Amino acid sequence: MKTERVTGGGSPEKNFDRNVPKKPAVPLKTDHPVMGIQSGKNFINTNAADIIMGVAKKPKPIYVDKRTGDKHDLEPSGLVPKYINKKDYGVTPEYICKRNEEIKKAQEDYDRYIQENLKKAAMKRLSDEEREAVLQGLKKNWEEVHKEFQSLSVFIDSIPKKIRKQRLEEEMKQLEHDIGIIEKHKIIYIANNA
């Protein structure tokens, strides 16, 4: 076996490895092969029996790339997916598991935060007595505004009188609307502003 080593000068210096085992010597002219040894084995029948009893060899996977029949090995071609033979095939990677856990924890924290805020801003139900008290108060206010509206003069000849009449009409309309809503709905919720 020949090895080359490059020295500082740039020219290769040839070294020979002497540890390679030597080949057997060439037989001499006077040496004759051993003759006359015969075996009782029937090689034809033995080979036939081995082939009949043996397992069929699987054909080597190939692919043909031209219609003329150029055959090539399938394994190094890249057409066979080798990744399914890996030990960790189908196993979710660690970083994805960690990311999923972080997402799940963040979602739980967010849900907990929303629940706390909903409890803080929970709606309070108005009892029937409170509802009646509010309704009576609105009706009383409407009567007072209506009485004041009735006490206006029939002739509106100045701008302040006209503005006062419009304001009273708007107040009465708003009170009528509020009274209608409270009478229409039996259950009323009020938002806590705490």
Rank of each mutant, 00 (worst) to 15 (best):
K57P: 04
G10F: 05
D31R: 12
D111E: 13
K23H: 08
N117Q: 15
K22H: 08
E108M: 08
Y189N: 06
D111K: 09
N47G: 06
K165A: 06
E101A: 11
S77F: 04
E170H: 09
K162E: 14
I156K: 08
K104V: 00
L138C: 03
A194W: 13
E94L: 04
K41V: 15
E75T: 00
R67W: 08
A48Q: 10
N141S: 03
G78A: 06
I156D: 01
L135Y: 04
D111T: 12
K140T: 11
V34M: 09
K147D: 08
S127I: 07
Y189V: 00
W142H: 15
G90S: 10
E130K: 13
V80E: 09
Y83A: 14
K162V: 02
Q107T: 03
D178K: 07
P33A: 09
K82N: 10
I190M: 14
I114P: 05
G40R: 13
K58T: 05
K57I: 08
R67N: 02
K162L: 12
P59Q: 11
Y63N: 00
M53G: 05
I190E: 09
S151H: 07
G90M: 08
Y113T: 01
I179H: 01
E102C: 01
S127W: 05
N100F: 05
L168T: 06
I96D: 09
I44Q: 12
R125H: 05
T92E: 14
Y89C: 07
K124I: 15
K2M: 11
I51M: 04
K41T: 11
G40M: 09
R5L: 13
K161D: 06
K140Q: 13
